[in-house]
Design a protein around this nucleic acid. Sequence first.
DNA 1: TTAATAGTGTCTCTGAGACACTATGTG
DNA 2: CACATAGTGTCTCAGAGACACTATTAA
Lengths: 246, 246
Amino acid sequence: MKHDLRQPDPEELAFLASYDASEFPHPSLAVDVVLLTLREERLHALLDERDAQPQLGSWALPGGFVGMEESLEEAAHRVLSRKAGLDEVFVEQLFTFGAPDRDPRTRVISVAYYALVDLRRVEAIEDEGRRLAPLEVPWEGELGGPVVALGPDGDPLPLAFDHAAILGTAALRLRGKLDYAPIGFELLPDTFTLRQLQSVHEAVLGRTVNKDSFRRRMLASGRLEATGQREHDVIHRPAELYRYLR
Amino acid sequence: MKHDLRQPDPEELAFLASYDASEFPHPSLAVDVVLLTLREERLHALLDERDAQPQLGSWALPGGFVGMEESLEEAAHRVLSRKAGLDEVFVEQLFTFGAPDRDPRTRVISVAYYALVDLRRVEAIEDEGRRLAPLEVPWEGELGGPVVALGPDGDPLPLAFDHAAILGTAALRLRGKLDYAPIGFELLPDTFTLRQLQSVHEAVLGRTVNKDSFRRRMLASGRLEATGQREHDVIHRPAELYRYLR
DNA sequence: TTAATAGTGTCTCTGAGACACTATGTG
DNA sequence: CACATAGTGTCTCAGAGACACTATTAA
């Protein structure tokens, strides 16, 4: 988001030189990133098990405090790079969470971002304290609400702070934007079939979509380019591979 | 946004007691409010002329720093109450602006909110340093970009900081949400005619809308209740007055 | 050849735009 | 009565769903 700053005049420069930023108490400012990917037709989010207080042992979104010289989006990318080894990921601001009691340590405002990435780029990063947890969205349509992350036994994972609400906001945003913004592609590899894209939409929306009209809409959108290649190693007629036109 | 916090255990409580929040440098955190209303079929935003450095004399969105005990939305309501004498206003989080250079004093992150209100509630608050400035949106559809606020002579007002970009984000959000969220009503008095509601949509969208299908859509939405009353003091057949069903 | 999915052609249904027509207030 | 806008009835057109049919690969 670019903006023009007025040129300061001399009087203003004198004021700025004497300005004391520590005059008021400041809350802490963090970014939390909802890294979403698709595995087995289901949305998964990257979660880290907290290895320190507070809420030791619960599962948290990757996040970090915002540096004094970086933009919010840069902070989100830094978090992804540090905690998931990912660069060049699609990232978008989600919502800013600032309830006074959301962090028991002190006042922490969190600017949440969501990131979308193809599974192949992240499936290797799982270890004991870091999971791609399947999400269960317990509401439909435009309702919204917290989202449940599942552990390997299918039981809900304990989520830290208000991170269930952040996940819920991400799921809601994704569902809302999917139909009019080109974001489904971000969860797929470079080239993909229409069926794969449809599966992405179905997983995100939590419902089946009509095959015929989905194909028509996607092809009519003008954002897909046929590669001329076809998928292989499938047990049926191979489908055309498409590429997303940026 | 409600969330469940886990109950801290004794070990966690000990940690919290020793936690020092001043360990890291913190940016300042502000809220800025885009208060929008409709006058003469045009969107207007409340702007204050800055009477202090920096950017003395330029026009700024009403805003303020976030208190340590209040939520972000409470801070937005407080700003509206203090700077516009308004309570019970429709308010929604817009976007968080955090470019490192957006404020020349120091690092200030601003959580922007937009508020929608009927003109009758705010037209009396204008004075020398406080205006409802008409907005000119120099782009269409889903493009976005900064927005121009006009002075009484029709010339653009100098806007402080990145507030032109914040206004642009508000205009874009409003245009995007108008068709699927019940927000047009917020810019009208309690009861209104369908023609008035159509005017609201036309002003926000910056284009005319089809009368017939607009009526059909609104009546079919189920969110309007006929009051049985009609407008009066008009030179033509008076229209039915409707009320918005919350 | 069969199984399985890719992809096409076409009918129907629904909602938006267009437009003509009727209704009802004021001057 | 004329004027101006409110409000209705109906036709057309475009896009979504439904469904039958053909195409193409592997086993």
